[in-house]
Design a protein around this nucleic acid. Structure first.
Length: 584
RNA sequence: GCGUUCGUAGCUCAGUUGGAUAGAGCGACGGACUUCGAAUCCGUAGGUCGCAGGUUCGAAUCCUGCCGGACGCACCA
């Protein structure tokens, strides 16, 4: 695909210089603008002539005509060329491109679509980063699938990727759940209460806030508990370990459910001390300074940021302090070339500060830290607010989606066909959710309407999955016909229908899409590609019989194309966390 | 106030390095199941790309200003 484009660019460059004659500077291949025409009927590649009008002292329309004549004079063209107003449109040789694309897709199978663009690069990706005082919510789900998907895309581009999670397991918010448990828990456990363990912990966090509303002394009690935690109080630490285990166990269950995993997990409780030590070293090297009250500061006003505290006067650490320690520990554990933090856009300023501090401390790798900032998930009424109970819980949402999927399967009377109803419902729910969350460009805020947002019709995950099942279904039918293809062979020149050629180009485009998604850290490009591929195939098979043809060669050819589409679909699914289904 | 970011159809979103008549899905209306699965397909209606300048042969896209929203500018994380 790309080879064809490059070949044509070289040809057009040569022809343009032929038209130019001896006058002026030569036109370089890099200057040639090539684009995809707005409509497929126009061709496969288009060259606008506007940029050369001045150089050649000629109207674009006239250049187009003489360029076509010049190309035809050169001869041996890999396709057809025609002028269209100020454009020169090119049509590739269908047969040869189709052969190479389909054969490559079928030969590579699960590896089709990968590139070597990032071969050898070591990338660490941090995402999720939950607190251990409550279960995951919808915002985490966007973060999780974004981090997981970006990691898979980077891997598909040849990078060595280390996925990492930072568990925020210490701080005042943790103590609040603990305090409420001490007061209202009555020694119960998630098992005895029959509640998923992270929800069990989260419920006490809610209870604390209710209590604190009535009784102002609650906040002070929480601060006191944090002091005892910092001092290593045995009783507090033991309760902390017990409740953290509950929270983490529950969160891990949700990760398993959503297909999220990590190669390395860091706990804030284990890295914050290292941050303090780095800050103390920074005082010695005069990067930081100590105020008379004992607090430690960094002055970033020279780069337009603020003066930031790093250690309080009592010597305790703040948010950015532990991130300093964590970054250094990570670089030591896994010498990354690049570290990507997948964190909500509200933390933009925090990361500017963090990266700047690490740079001041003299770490050359600080230049390779990247904040992949993504927008908030809002409700139609506005922001999710825990105080108003509008937070959409991750497990509840998944339960609801699975219920909807199961109901749909039953309504269609396909329980028998599907086999494992629960597993299929889970796969559909996950496909719907992940596609919904990744469709939107990461940087944008998005609106989630619990009642209407996730549907299974139209531009949705299940729509894409459905196309996969239809291809699988065609292949099953083919098997039932018992070697109907016989001597029939793949003959790409038989791919005459417009949609067939579009499908070939789309399948061929997967590696380019993967490359660009990797460059831009943007899974929504893969999502958009999937919808185009699926809807083109949907239109195609609707009015073009794959199996029922008089010519067995045509059947074999269309089967090969359908398989290639299935391969591209399945491989792109993997990148955005949509399960591929044989039946649904 | 300063900084970051977003503003495209009734709603939710695409829109490639600036390029041909700005595209989808949902919702609305009208069609297509005897033929590889209708979670599908086809059609109709729906737009001052927030506003105003600028750069350019050409701007939804780049620049400036303004308007509107979100987020940030904590010894919270």
């Amino acid at each position: 695909m790309n080879d064809a484009a490059r070949e044509w660019i070289a040809l057009v460059c040569k022809a343009l210089n032929g038209l130019r004659g001896e006058s002026g500077a030569p036109i370089e291949a890099a200057e040639i603008v090539a684009e995809v025409p707005p409509k497929p009927e126009l061709g496969d590649l288009a060259f606008p002539m506007f940029p050369y009008a001045k150089r050649l002292r000629k109207a674009p329309g006239l250049i187009a005509e003489s360029l076509v004549a010049e190309l035809e004079r050169i001869g041996g063209l890999p396709g057809k060329v025609s002028p269209a107003g100020p454009y020169v449109n090119v049509r590739y040789l269908v047969g040869s491109v189709a052969r190479s694309v389909v054969e490559e897709a079928l030969a590579l199978g699960p590896r089709y679509g990968r590139t070597d663009r990032l071969a050898g690069e070591r990338v660490m990706v941090e995402f999720s980063s939950p607190n251990t005082n409550k279960p995951l919510h919808l915002g985490h789900l966007r973060n999780d699938i974004l981090g997981e998907s970006v990691s898979r895309i980077l891997k598909a581009n040849g990078a060595d990727v280390c996925k990492t999670d930072l568990i925020n397991d210490r701080g005042i918010h943790i103590c609040k759940s603990m305090l409420a448990y001490e007061r209202f828990g009555g020694g119960r456990s998630p098992e005895s209460a029959g509640v998923k363990s992270d929800h069990f912990v989260g419920d006490f966090y809610v209870k604390f806030n209710e209590w604190a509303k009535e009784d102002p002394s609650a906040e002070e009690a929480a601060r006191e508990m944090l002091r005892r935690w910092e001092a290593g109080d045995g009783q507090v630490r033991s309760l902390w370990r017990r409740m953290n285990d509950w929270a983490i166990k529950g969160i891990e269950e949700t990760y398993r459910r959503t297909g999220i995993s990590f190669d390395r997990i860091y706990f804030e409780s284990e890295t914050y001390e290292a941050g303090r030590e780095e800050v103390l070293k920074g005082i010695a090297s005069r990067v930081f300074s100590r105020d008379p009250d004992g607090s430690v500061w960094v002055d970033l006003t020279d780069v337009g940021l603020d003066r930031k505290v790093l250690l309080r006067k009592d010597g305790t650490t703040v948010y950015v302090t532990q991130d300093i320690g964590t970054a250094i520990a990570r670089r030591r554990d896994y010498p990354f070339d690049r570290l990507i933090y997948v964190v909500a856009s509200e933390q933009h300023y925090h990361f500017k500060v963090l990266f700047n501090i690490l740079s001041r401390l003299g770490f050359p790798w600080a230049e390779n830290l990247h904040h992949l900032s993504y927008g908030m998930v809002n409700l139609p009424e506005g922001k999710m607010k825990s105080r108003e109970g509008t937070v959409v819980d991750a497990d509840d949402l998944l339960d609801e989606l699975e219920g909807m999927a199961a109901a749909e399967i039953r309504a269609k009377g396909r329980e028998e066909e599907v086999g494992d109803l629960a597993a299929t419902s889970r796969a559909i729910a996950l496909g719907a959710l992940n596609y919904y969350l990744l469709q939107v460009s990461p940087s944008k805020d998005m609106v989630f309407d619990p009642k209407e947002s996730i549907s299974f019709v139209g531009n949705t995950g299940p729509y894409l999955q459905y196309m996969g099942t239809r291809i699988s279904s065609i292949m099953r039918k083919l098997d039932e016909l018992r070697s109907p293809l016989g001597e029939a062979e793949f003959r790409p020149e038989l791919l005459a229908a417009g949609d067939e050629w579009e499908l070939v180009k789309l399948v061929g485009a997967l590696p380019d899409v993967v490359a660009r998604a990797g460059d831009e850290l943007n899974p929504s490009l893969v999502a958009g590609y999937l919808f185009t591929l699926a809807s083109t195939f949907s239109r195609y098979y609707h009015d073009t019989p794959v199996l029922h043809n008089d010519d067995p060669h045509l059947t074999a050819t269309r089967v090969a194309l359908a398989k290639a589409v299935g391969t591209a679909l399945r491989n792109a699914f993997e990148l955005v966390g949509i399960p591929f289904l044989e039946r649904m």
